[in-house]
């Protein structure tokens, strides 16, 4: 019993060291821009760079559109499959697992071949088209996470009973979705949204291959040209990711639950 606890602490402390040291080292490094003393010069340099602001804004906007499109693709599908077409569920689960099996790099290669300027849907023929393609690529990337979040949300509130109760009370299909289902799975949707945001914000591969001025390619550019700014940017990225995950945690406390059957 005593030795169990000793090993548990040892594993925990070694593990923590592996995860904390790089963060501490990066933070320390980011403060060393001014010779001989610690300063936030590297951060000042990052924030005064116009490309930082523009690429970050671009990625945030693409991220927001990704979330909106993702919700429209996932929520109605999960709802109706759960409610009326449970036989489709395994197929849906299979599809949402694909982005975890097929590397993003491979997918984007497929997009470029399929939706090039001379193809039947020339997404990459225009800037707007490419932006749309990038958004759709990100929706695909985030699909496993969005799906899981929404599916869990609908499971914990038992949408079947809620829908039947609303129907008996006289609500129509649209009212059920807008006034009953959505408010109840809002927390789940938002969790999926923040996770999507965390994935999209620093994404490099797809954005760079589609030649879009996103935050990820900007980071790589800084990495090859500067010494201290990358460390500052790593810390900033970590804080953004922490913020997104922190929001999910906070939201989790407001998640509605019914004492539903556990199907």
């Amino acid at each position: 019993m005593k030795s169990d606890k000793f090993w548990a602490w040892l594993v925990f402390i070694l593990g923590s060291a592996y995860f904390v040291v790089p963060l501490a080292a990066t933070f320390e490094f980011s403060l060393r821009m001014r010779r001989g003393e610690y300063s936030f010069d590297a951060y000042a340099s990052v924030f005064s760079d116009p490309y930082f602001a523009s690429s970050f804004t671009y990625s945030v906007v693409v991220g927001l559109f990704t979330i909106i499109v993702g919700i429209f693709v996932v929520v109605p599908a999960v709802y109706f499959v759960r409610l009326r077409m449970p036989w489709l569920k395994p197929i849906m689960e299979f599809i949402t697992l694909l982005p975890l099996v097929i590397p993003a790099l491979v997918l984007v290669y497929g997009y470029i071949r399929l939706y090039g300027s001379s193809s039947f849907i020339p997404f990459t023929g225009s800037v707007l088209g490419t932006d749309i393609l990038l958004t759709c690529a990100y929706v695909t990337l985030a699909l496993p996470y969005m799906y899981r979040a929404v599916d869990n949300g609908m499971r914990t509130i038992d949408i079947g009973t809620l829908t039947e109760a609303a129907q008996i009370a006289g609500a129509n299909q649209l009212q059920i979705i807008a006034q009953i289902i959505l408010p109840n799975i809002l927390v789940a949707i938002l969790s999926g949204a923040f996770l999507t945001f965390a994935i999209v914000i620093g994404e490099f591969t797809i954005a760079s291959l589609l030649n879009r001025p996103a935050f990820g390619p900007y980071l790589v550019g800084i990495g090859t040209n500067r010494a201290y700014e990358p460390a500052a940017l790593a810390i900033i990225s970590f804080i953004i990711t922490w913020g997104a995950m922190g929001m999910i945690n906070v939201l989790g406390r407001f998640a509605p639950r019914t004492s539903a059957r556990t199907d």
Binding site: P22, T26, A198, A234, S237, M245
Partner: peptide
């Protein structure tokens, strides 16, 4: 939750600054 999403470019920067 944070670290599993802290991948890609910033992670490379952090390890360059460390190792």
């Amino acid at each position: 939750g944070v670290a599993s999403n802290f991948a890609g470019v910033p992670l490379a920067f952090a390890f360059i600054a460390t190792l």
